[in-house]
Design a binder for these strands. Structure first.
Length: 777
DNA sequence: ATATACTGCTTTTTT
DNA sequence: AGCAGTATAT
């Protein structure tokens, strides 16, 4: 439910939370079951507090209880609390959990939200101070890039050499650091288009102001400008916010940090909760330093460590702790648990990515048979290209799965188009919206016409739609184009007139019908068209939940999130980043190979710092597991279509041996030569990439293996030799009428007769005859 | 105005 | 390899 724009009136009548606490006596029951550290974090309400909350230590519980405590003890009323999270999901969860403790009074938590949504609300109230109107639009990245492209074109910057995307990234980076065009350090200027970065940044900001728009970064940046230039406004918020609470503090960037510091400076009642070991967003501006220097910034700050873990078994916890201990820049915590024992972290080497997906899929089936639910299992990958192998395999085996992430609902083209129609109806001068839909669906207004319109608009200093209005009165356009354009303008006027009368959801439907948008999709035979129509239906449904069109538009940009994870029983596939904050009984961590994880790019770009962040990512991955964690790596992997030889990740070596177990099936089930465990290390052999040292074993070259796909071919060297055998020779079993489950492994050639080859798989105790193979070159 | 060929890129992602 | 965005042909 969107928050109302006015302040809620304090509930009169009925018991207040503070009364309830008093009735219950000195020991309110919301404190029940907290451990001493948690309790300290809840009760230390005055002054700056930093809560270092390790993974699985009950952070959210502490946060919500602390809020309840502040309210119950009458120190503040709900609308006097500023509670900031990073994601809408976190905000939603927090609201739900507080409601569970204090009941309907939680609705008064008007200032609970993401940094961006709170900053957007503040900006709406003081927009004029930064040259905007209160009804400014918030541009998404797509709009932002299109706008930048225009700026670059107008400035004759070669968009090929200097892509708008890159500038968008830079500007975002600058805004994250709190730099307005005027305050941009000289060194940053050189980063783009031979020292024109600053000028282009300034022009872009100018265009935004004219469009009465701002991008995500601006929300915070404008807030900073307002607070620093208008002390009276800042003072107003000092009065209002008695207590500040910040979740995931390790992920704050400089702008967010400055914003917080400004708001906290008077009362100093700021509580930041975070975990330096889970800072994984450095690449988008998060500063671990913010958490590392908290005590310096807020003198007298109390630091409370939550170190008792309630989530994982001791082996998992020890493995993760051992790994993260290799990081230098950390505050240091020692997590412990009473859940002793459990399974060790299983680590396995496999032949290639396909073998890895087979292995994991098999284990999932086994776990399912043993009574685990699919939804209790997750595959956490470093990068999304790794997901496909699993999807392919799961489809084949009919294992239900869901990929978390992917394109967000309101980032889809059809949703943006629909919203652009509304934006144009709502604010006729929204040029970006105009440009987007003037020929969507196709109505015979081509690129040339649009360019001409925009040029006229620019020359006359008016908006695109105003220019269009002028131009249809002249004979500058071909008759046909002119008719389509004036029809379009007429439609717009009509919708605008209807906007007042119709409910906005109804208006949306009308617009989609009358513009021909839905018709165009219905005629579209492509498989996506159906989904798109459904998405639009969903959009209309979502719209009806909002009071006004304005409220809806605000939420489209900042909050709308229709991609609810399904509660279905499905294996979850997601990136490690997406897994933060979640937990699963059984977690698979594939692709632990140098270059993949840790990502080569991360190391190349940020060196040791990047490596440490990758390690934190590994830590996050392991600590998602409650009962079982399984790490795997492949000897060969296809990356962007190329076969590459892989080395096991250094993170594998960093796992303490005492908490790790190598697969018993190594050697048959992948875990090829060169990947056996030698003493304390995996593969001491320096020749891992090219060959291996185990006697009698020969590693198939990746190039040969590549040649064997998608087929049924093997790498053969002669009788008595061990060979790598690919599908479906090694073993196969059928389900119903199809033979589809294929294993891959190593075996010894016992006989070669013409085109037939007998291979003995000792470890599996199987003997197979192979009738199609190629000699190794 | 639209169909087709060609080129270059490719981590992580929220708002 | 696969895709998106752009240049070129129809």
């Amino acid at each position: 439910m969107p928050p109302s724009d006015s302040y809620p009136v304090p509930a009169s009548g009925g018991p207040r939370v503070s009364d309830l606490a008093r009735v219950r006596g000195a020991e309110p029951d919301y404190l029940d079951g907290l451990n001493p550290e948690q309790r300290a974090a809840v009760e230390a309400t005055e002054g700056p507090v930093l809560v270092l909350a390790g993974a699985g230590t009950g952070k959210t519980r502490v946060l919500t209880t602390r809020l309840a405590h502040i309210l119950a003890t009458g120190k503040a009323r709900p609308w006097e609390l500023l509670v900031v999270t990073f994601t809408n999901k976190a905000a939603r969860e927090m609201r739900e959990r507080i409601t569970a403790i204090i009941g309907p009074q939680a609705e008064g938590l008007r200032w609970l939200g993401t940094f961006h949504s709170i900053a957007a609300q503040i900006l709406r109230r003081h927009a004029e101070l930064v040259g905007l109107k209160s009804n400014y639009t918030i541009l998404d990245t797509d709009d932002q890039e299109r706008l930048l492209k225009q700026v670059l074109e107008a400035e004759n910057v070669d968009a090929k050499r200097w892509p708008p995307k890159a500038l968008a990234g830079l500007i975002d980076h600058w805004k994250n650091r709190g730099w307005t065009p005027d305050r941009l350090p000289a060194s940053e200027n050189a980063q783009f288009a031979n020292g024109r970065g600053q000028a282009l940044y300034r022009l872009y900001q100018e265009r935004l102001r004219i469009l009465n728009a701002c991008d995500f970064g601006d929300l915070l940046l404008h807030n900073l400008t307002i607070f620093t230039s208008s002390p009276d406004v800042l003072a107003e918020y000092h009065d209002r916010f008695r207590y500040l609470l910040v979740d995931e503090y390790q992920d704050t960037n400089v702008a967010q940090y400055l914003w917080l510091r400004l708001l906290a400076q008077k009362r100093q009642n700021v509580c930041c909760v975070g975990d330096d070991d889970q800072s994984i967003y450095g690449w988008r501006g998060a500063e671990v330093d913010n958490i590392l220097r908290f005590e310096r910034d807020f003198p007298g700050a109390k630091v409370i460590r939550l170190e008792r873990n309630y989530r994982s078994t001791s082996h998992i916890l020890a493995a993760a702790s051992g790994l993260i201990a290799s990081n230098k820049s950390r505050l240091g915590k020692t997590l412990w648990t009473e859940a002793e024992g459990g399974e060790k972290v299983i680590v396995r080497g496999v032949w290639d990515g396909e073998a890895e997906s087979r292995l994991i899929a098999d284990e999932i089936e086994r776990a399912k048979k043993a009574g685990r639910r699919y939804r209790d299992m997750a595959i956490l990958v470093r990068a999304s290209f790794q997901m496909r192998a699993f999807e392919d395999r799961f489809i084949l085996l009919q294992i239900p799965y869901v990929v978390i992430g992917g394109p967000r609902f309101f980032e889809r083209a059809e949703i943006r188009d629909a919203v652009a129609y509304l934006r144009l109806i709502y604010s006729p001068d929204d040029d970006l919206a105009f440009e987007r839909i003037v020929n969507t669906p196709k109505r015979g207004i081509g690129e040339t016409t649009v360019q001409k319109l925009l040029q006229v608009a620019r020359v006359n200093g008016v908006s695109g739609s105003t220019a269009a209005r002028e131009i249809v009165r002249t004979d500058e356009l071909a008759a046909r184009t002119r008719t389509s354009l004036s029809n379009f303008l007429r439609d717009l006027d009509r919708w605008r007139a209807e906007a007042g009368r119709l409910h906005h959801a109804r208006l949306m439907e009308t617009v989609l019908e009358e513009s021909g948008y839905t018709d165009a999709l219905r005629l579209d035979r492509s498989p996506q068209a159906q989904t798109r129509l459904e998405n639009l239906k969903e959009l209309v449904g979502a719209m009806s939940q909002y009071e006004t069109l304005e409220a809806f538009l605000e939420h489209v940009a900042l909050v709308l999130d229709l991609d609810r994870e399904s509660g279905d029983d499905r294996v979850q596939i997601m990136t490690l980043h997406q897994a933060k904050g979640l937990e699963f009984p059984l977690v698979f961590l594939p692709g632990w190979e140098e270059g993949v994880f840790p990502s080569q790019r991360s190391i190349d770009e940020t060196g040791e710092k990047g490596l440490e962040e990758e390690r934190r990512l590994a830590y996050v991955g392991l600590t998602r597991a409650r009962e079982e964690a399984r790490v795997s790596f492949a000897a060969n992997r296809q990356v962007y279509g190329r076969w590459t030889s892989q080395m096991p990740s250094r993170f594998v070596d960093e796992l303490p041996l005492a908490n790790v177990e190598a697969s018993s099936e190594t050697g048959y089930y992948g875990g090829g030569p060169g990947m056996q465990q030698h003493g304390s290390r995996w593969d001491e052999s320096p020749s891992f990439g090219a060959g291996y040292s185990s006697p009698g074993w020969r590693r198939a070259q990746a190039s040969n293996y590549k040649g064997s796909h998608p087929g049924r071919q093997q790498v053969i060297e002669g009788e008595g030799r061990l060979v790598a055998v690919s599908e479906p020779a090694a073993s196969a079993y059928s389900r119903g009428d199809r033979v589809f489950h294929v294993k891959f492994g190593y075996g010894q050639v016992t006989a070669i007769e013409g085109n037939k080859l007998t291979v003995n798989f000792e470890k599996a105790g199987e003997k197979k005859v192979i009738d199609s193979f190629v000699e190794k070159a």
